[in-house]
Computed example of a mutant assay.
Amino acid sequence: MSNPSEIAAALERLDELTRTLRRECPWDREQDERSIVPHTLEEAYELADAAHAGDDRRLLDELGDVLFQIHLLSLLLEERGAGDLAAVADHCREKLIRRHPHVFGDVDLDGASEVLENWDRVKREEPGREPGLFGEVPENLPSLLHARKLQRRAAAGGVEHFASVEQALAALETATSVVAAARGRDQPYDELGDLLFAAVAVARKLRVDPELALRSASERFRAAVQDSAVSPTQGEADHS
């Protein structure tokens, strides 16, 4: 187990390396937060893939890549006089303390679901937050995670359309029937969207990440097709 001095020394070495790259590497010198963020997202997805695969070696590697992204983005803030890595760490620490009053305060919460609801409530009440139930929900989230975020926010605000797994499954069954009935029409766009939204509700109630679940299903499909050496159904063109 690492001790605090070893952790601090390792982070300092990475910080020094980040500053050296920013000064001396032509590619790193040209970057700003807008050009870096696509790489940050890519690294985050690779981290999620390693975690989901249970591959500790890859997890260690991908955590390092994400950590470098944090150092570099913090350095960009520092260059503009808008903060630095220490400010990022302190802000994160203060936020976590504020959003865990059941640990650092005298609030009593029963179970993980109440912790999540209270987290969202505290977050909405923080100064400077965009007002409204759905304030600051990122519009560039992947669609499944965006749907889950909206559902969670609504539930935290007392608007829960899927109070139980059974209700979510019933909504999914209804949406499936509607899509089946709409097959004769051109592209039942809204109906299929409702079906996917209900599927996200089922995942949320089962505490399953819908993005990772769908990715896992895609991987199983790929493995099955490769193992059977049978071409995918003809007529479904891949226009990527």
Results as ranks from 00 to 15, higher is better:
residue 79 E to N: 02
residue 50 A to S: 14
residue 206 L to W: 03
residue 86 A to I: 06
residue 229 A to P: 00
residue 41 L to M: 07
residue 16 E to Q: 12
residue 70 I to K: 00
residue 223 A to G: 05
residue 183 R to A: 07
residue 19 R to C: 12
residue 95 K to R: 15
residue 101 P to Q: 04
residue 53 A to W: 02
residue 66 V to D: 00
residue 163 A to V: 09
residue 4 P to Q: 10
residue 174 T to C: 07
residue 70 I to Q: 10
residue 111 G to L: 01
residue 231 S to C: 04
residue 227 D to P: 03
residue 76 L to W: 08
residue 127 P to F: 08
residue 162 F to W: 14
residue 41 L to G: 14
residue 16 E to H: 11
residue 97 I to K: 14
residue 200 V to M: 08
residue 142 P to A: 08
residue 206 L to H: 04
residue 67 L to R: 05
residue 2 S to M: 11
residue 124 R to G: 09
residue 231 S to R: 12
residue 54 G to D: 04
residue 213 A to T: 06
residue 237 A to N: 11
residue 165 V to W: 01
residue 87 A to Y: 03
residue 116 L to P: 00
residue 109 L to K: 01
residue 207 R to W: 03
residue 1 M to N: 06
residue 64 G to S: 08
residue 177 S to H: 15
residue 190 D to G: 08
residue 157 G to K: 03
residue 33 E to R: 14
residue 9 A to P: 01
residue 14 L to S: 07
residue 28 D to S: 15
residue 51 A to V: 15
residue 159 V to K: 06
residue 194 D to V: 02
residue 211 E to L: 15
residue 68 F to I: 04
residue 62 E to M: 06
residue 38 P to S: 05
residue 35 S to T: 14
residue 70 I to Y: 09
residue 20 T to R: 13
residue 157 G to R: 03
residue 59 L to R: 10
residue 199 A to D: 02
residue 58 R to G: 01
residue 152 R to K: 08
residue 123 K to C: 00
residue 45 Y to L: 15
residue 218 S to D: 12
residue 228 S to H: 07
residue 134 F to Y: 09
residue 193 G to Y: 02
residue 37 V to F: 13
residue 180 A to P: 04
residue 178 V to A: 12
residue 5 S to M: 12
residue 209 D to A: 03
residue 71 H to A: 13
residue 125 E to F: 00
residue 73 L to F: 05
residue 132 G to K: 08
residue 147 A to D: 06
residue 208 V to P: 02
residue 216 S to D: 14
residue 98 R to Q: 09
residue 22 R to A: 12
